[in-house]
Design a protein around this nucleic acid. Structure first.
Lengths: 339, 339
DNA sequence: CTGAAAGCGCTTACAG
DNA sequence: CTGAAAGCGCTTACAG
């Protein structure tokens, strides 16, 4: 009961070659009579044989493993995607290795190296800012990979994401329709394209109403979220530019922002209306349930897995950008419609 | 650039045996002169050699992989632990495979099989109810594993958890001190030991004040959370037994419960005081920030990894139960102290 | 001190 | 139709 049972054990017990055992257990028909096949299966069962997938992988060059790299698996946005990716990968017989980059270029490289050394068949990543060269290297090595949520215009690659510009435009337009005039935005610095697109949507919506002011767009850094939000909010709440609404570019920014608004005893939506990206239990439970842009995480996860596995199974497929749906969930945090 | 570069490529280029390349790259000294070692390392670098860890694993019987099985990776409690486990595992040179059991015995078995076929060196699991036989099978196969959060008194096994009885006792005692007399509890059915311990602590605290009533302890099922909470709460809020406080056994129960209390327009803490287990952003943002039992997830994750890897590296170590810390975080949802 | 050979557990192309 | 052999990419015990 100590050593694991291998095909060799079955072969010896039955008195055939290891190769034959392999054929039978992998159901390559025609190699052996049905009674012998029966016998081999029976002994495999008796010995409680479990295939060693590592050995198979060494042979086949495939591990049926996907490497998933996100900013932080403990962030609900990513853990929700991870869950969907897990389920979808299982459908295809794949297992998922995961890692958190903390938006660090070095950690991202470390995770990529680890996953490649472990022969992951493909990678799914929400890449950190500045990791373009890492993605180019993957392309050069012909490792299939898919970007989720984020992407780089300079790196042609499969990606699955929403139309961030449109989603932001719609969110801000909704605020305008409720009568807000001085709408601030809080986003992440770092220059990631999806953040820029959200800013662009925000800006365009305001410009279309002649209400855009650059000073109302503030950025916080991922590593110093609390301070960044504090600085940004205090800027937006200065008497001379006091905003009547804030558009948060992610759920983390919104949650931190709402905590600080609470601390400042500002009421949502009367003192400040709020709209955000992404979902959160905290949004639902907030005294003024928070309106948000809901990205279809299910579609995002599913498409990412599908593209990743297609990349594994059919080399050199054309590059695809899948744009999944996003809709506005409007609740009390925006106030009521003016018209 | 197509095929991956192997030790063979380096060996050919340098004109030595593959074995020698292996020795040098693994820094087994004394096998070769320093100039030859230098040369091999240089060529490895030039060819951008990456070791194939699959091959090494087949040889060594070790994959440096941990399998993590939780109820649902998208539940913040588990994704927070997963993040800590990820970081800690990385310290030891291990990578983590994860899977969600959805509290299903079948899915749990499927994940265990998958991870063992992939030769995970050890498993860390928050086991679902009814998986005792699966754990016994792991023991029989001498696969190192560690239970986190949950455990079975009938299955001797390494575990890392808090003292659920004590934590619940303290939480309920706090409610009593604030003057609550009719304290209900909402927990999961399924009979998991950690849930029972929380109920036991709740019961003992009330009995110590002569206030225990079995009818005030309600259970919901994991699969029908919303209905279960609705039924439980409506029971607790019947006019004849109307509770003045509810103790929720997990954050999921509490979040669902608070949503329903909101829908019923009941005010926390004036109509009903609330205390829960586990953390949540939603607790922080709730208009009456929710008091909770904070389990030390950091210690839990760290100890789990430590025990798992010790199990891999030193077979047949004694069984250990690590009890990590838990403390009460008291905020407005309990109301103010009476005395 | 060094090199060649065996072997980890499988799969499959290739002789008979 | 079947069996034996080679090989996936490494590591290491074993001869020289």
């Amino acid at each position: 009961m100590e050593r694991k049972v291998s095909m060799k054990d079955i072969a010896e017990r039955v008195g055939v070659s290891i190769a034959l055992v392999s054929y039978v257990l992998n159901e390559k028909e025609g190699r052996v009579g049905p009674e012998m096949a029966q016998q081999i299966r029976k002994v495999a069962q008796e010995l409680n044989y479990r295939p060693n997938l590592i050995a198979r992988s060494l042979q086949s060059g495939r591990t049926n493993t996907l490497g998933l790299i996100v900013a932080d698996i403990s962030n609900p946005f990513f853990s929700n995607i991870a869950r969907i990716i897990e389920d979808e990968a299982k459908q295809y017989g794949y297992t998922v290795l995961f890692g958190s980059s903390d938006e660090s270029v070095e950690k991202s490289q470390g995770l990529i190296d680890t996953f490649l050394n472990r022969q992951a068949d493909a990678l799914i990543l929400a890449p950190a800012a500045g990791t373009e060269p890492q993605l180019m290297a993957l392309k050069k090595k012909k490792i299939p990979f898919v970007l989720v949520d984020r992407y780089f215009p300079s790196v042609p690659a499969n990606s699955v994401r929403i139309d961030n510009y449109q989603a932001a435009y719609k969110a801000v337009t909704h605020l305008l329709r409720t009568g807000k005039k001085r709408i601030g935005m809080l986003t992440y610095d770092g220059g990631m394209e999806h953040m820029q697109e959200r800013e662009r949507g925000y800006r365009q919506a305001l410009e279309d109403h002649g209400l855009y002011q650059a000073a109302l767009s503030q950025r916080a850094s991922y590593l110093h979220l609390q301070e960044g939000v504090a600085t940004g909010l205090s800027h937006l709440l200065q008497p001379d530019r006091k905003v009547d609404a804030v558009f948060f570019a992610t759920n983390s920014l919104a949650i931190e922002g709402l905590k600080q608004l609470n601390a400042l005893r500002l009421k949502v939506p009367d003192d400040v209306a709020v709209i955000s990206f992404d979902e959160s239990d905290a949004f639902d439970l907030f005294y003024a349930p928070v309106s948000y842009v809901r990205q279809s995480l299910r579609d995002m996860g599913r498409e990412a897995v599908r593209l990743a596995i297609q990349g594994v199974e059919q080399k050199s497929r054309p590059q695809v950008d899948v744009i999944v749906g996003a809709d506005l969930v409007i609740r009390k945090s925006c106030g009521f419609k003016a018209g």
